[in-house]
């Protein structure tokens, strides 16, 4: 009889492994920084943030999204956008307009020069 060893999902950490960067992408850090700061200053409640983030995580789970940090931070961004829209702190149309303005600013700015929002204003 052969031994049945199902693959492990978790494992003890390697004490000798080099320190990994805390954030994979700068925007990962910025999403958490914004959410934490808004909770700390009372603009959004900790429970609303947890509930909204939890709901977005469930969407990923239902859709069988990859169980990765990228998926987690994308859910965190969607949750923050949704919560700020619901609370009218940053309505979605405002955010979409600002996103488009930044996109135009990036495209209008030559490489190597600082990108200013005014460059995208039409």
């Amino acid at each position: 009889m052969s031994a049945c060893n199902p693959p492990r999902e978790f494992g003890p950490e390697d004490d000798l492994a080099p320190n990994a960067p805390k954030f994979g992408e700068a925007w990962h850090a910025q999403v958490l920084a914004m959410a934490d700061t808004l909770v700390t200053t009372g603009q959004i409640s900790a429970s609303d943030w947890a509930e909204t983030l939890g709901a977005e995580r469930r969407v990923d789970e239902i859709n069988n999204a990859p169980d990765t940090e990228e998926t987690y931070y994308a859910a965190a961004l969607r949750a923050l956008e949704r919560l700020l829209d619901i609370t009218a702190i940053v309505p979605k149309p405002d955010l979409n307009d600002r996103r488009d303005t930044w996109a135009r600013a990036y495209l209008a700015t030559p490489h190597g020069q600082p990108v200013e929002l005014t460059a995208g204003k039409s």
């Binding site: 808004l38 961004l77 930044w102 996109a103």
Partner: peptide, 14 residues
């Protein structure tokens, strides 16, 4: 990338 652009937009509005 799109998420970075949206984060930048959100941060600048806040």
């Amino acid at each position: 990338p799109e998420p970075a652009l949206r984060v930048k937009a959100l941060e600048s509005l806040l």
